[in-house]
Amino acid sequence: MSSFEPNAIVRGAQLTVVGTLRALRNPQLFQHEHFRQAALAVVGGIVIQLIVQIPIIIIKLFIWMASWVSDLDRATWDDEVIGGLNFLSNSVLQVPFLLMTLMRYITPTLDDIFMLSLKWVDRTYIEKHETENPHHLRAMYYQNLASYPTKRGSGSKSKKPTTEALLAFFRRYARKVGMWVGIYALSLLPVVGRFVMPAASFYTVKKSIGTVPAAVIFGSGIILPKRYIVLFLHTYYASRSLMRELLDPYFSRIKFDKDQKRKWFRDREGVLFGFAFAFTVVLKTPFIGVLMYGIAQASTAYLVTKITDPPPAPEKSEGFAQSQVAWTNKHDFLQLSLDKLDKFNIKPEEAQQVSVDTGLAPSPGKKFS
């Protein structure tokens, strides 16, 4: 349980709160184009949700009409059908999350929000430590990270990477939908069906939390109503998917290979789950969830500064990705109090160099608003 221990999840939840409060202090955040596009996404979500609900309403109407000629009080198939339709709509298709994720591949708005917030995090860091020796402060994240080319830029040369990224997303989405539909269908089988959801939970979390805790979840899944284990599985998978998408602006610049990226996530999965959990719940809220996606993206900028090192200039980046695979000060960081979260960002041996034209270096006595 070294990566998914309870204090790692709690620390991730704490970073959610602190990161959100930091992001909301940024006066430029709500002036961003994202929130106009999010409003359009709300309208689009309503339309798509109505389209999804049409067959569900028709089937519910059919079941209601069937109750006129057949006694359904003792039957269970109608409850299973309605439950399956609600499961498909709320847990499988996840229309709001799908819309916001697609927006990432169509427009750079969410990437811009991440970089805007990263610059704000650097500014507030300097403000917080303005009375300290500037040579003892950490390097800035925004200045160097903004210099890295992204996998998806603008112009004709970037069309192929964007198309490939979209295809990769739809493949992941199709696999997830297929998996959820398959698991739910198997859970409807007589006798063995009651063990399907608990077994899926055991298999899902065994590598992350260990065999004994996974076995406890398996046993609980057999005893508790199926809706609880469905809620658990959905939250777990949705949090992982959300965190992957929120970190896309970072990984589109710092080039990790597949094995490095997998190990990077593995070493931080407890904190990442704790960070994404609250946002996963909020994003399921109709209409409000779509608007909150931008806040989640902004908060991720703060998270990155706590679980990674400041990136070097692009020309000095060779070997940097490999150096970030293992979170070297993880256990010490998890023990820090909230007011000491910057402790491991202070590096006395490194002089802080901040370009004047970035607006990040404060003059003596200057306070950032």
Rank of each mutant, 00 (worst) to 15 (best):
S208I: 09
L50V: 09
S363V: 15
E5N: 14
H136Y: 15
P213M: 02
M115V: 12
F62G: 14
P362K: 04
L116W: 00
L186W: 08
V230Q: 05
M1C: 04
M103S: 04
L110K: 11
T308I: 02
L231F: 15
S156A: 12
F35Q: 09
W327N: 02
I56P: 00
P134R: 07
T150C: 08
Y141N: 00
R152T: 09
L93N: 08
W77V: 08
A41N: 13
N7G: 06
A75K: 14
S67N: 08
R22L: 15
L85H: 08
P310D: 07
L88A: 11
N144G: 06
L21P: 03
L15Y: 03
S201R: 07
W264A: 01
E132W: 11
L186K: 10
S147N: 12
K316T: 03
S89H: 08
I113P: 03
S154F: 13
H135R: 14
E130I: 15
T16R: 11
W327Q: 03
F202Q: 06
Q324W: 01
E80Q: 14
L99N: 02
F30A: 06
L15T: 01
I307E: 00
L98R: 06
G182C: 10
F62R: 14
H32P: 05
V47C: 05
K151L: 08
A298N: 01
A39F: 15
L72S: 03
S117Y: 08
N86P: 02
K151N: 08
L61F: 13
S323N: 04
T204S: 13
L167I: 13
D257A: 04
Y141F: 04
K160R: 13
G359S: 05
F4K: 00
M243W: 06
T328C: 06
A199Y: 00
I106E: 05
H129N: 04
S117E: 12
G210V: 02
P225M: 05
W264T: 01
A199L: 07
A278V: 14
D257P: 01
Q322D: 09
I113T: 13
A321M: 10
I9R: 07
S299C: 10
W180N: 08
A214S: 11
E350A: 08
M197L: 15
L167D: 10
S323T: 02
S117P: 10
D342N: 08
L24A: 01
G155Y: 00
S2F: 06
H135I: 10
V271T: 09
D309F: 08
R11A: 07
R36K: 14
N345F: 04
F333P: 03
T131R: 10
R268Y: 02
V196C: 05
V52P: 15
T285S: 11
K263P: 01
T101N: 02
I126T: 13
S187T: 05
A321S: 12
L242Q: 05
F30S: 03
D357R: 06
H32V: 07
V177H: 01
K330F: 11
T211Q: 07
R25A: 15
G19Q: 02
A165F: 06
N7I: 10
V191E: 13
R227K: 14
Y237G: 10
L360W: 00
R36T: 14
L242S: 05
E33K: 15
Q324N: 03
I183H: 02
T150F: 04
E318G: 07
L145H: 00
G274H: 00
F277W: 12
L29A: 00
K151I: 05
A165C: 11
E80C: 11
P310Y: 06
Y250C: 01
Q297C: 15
A214E: 03
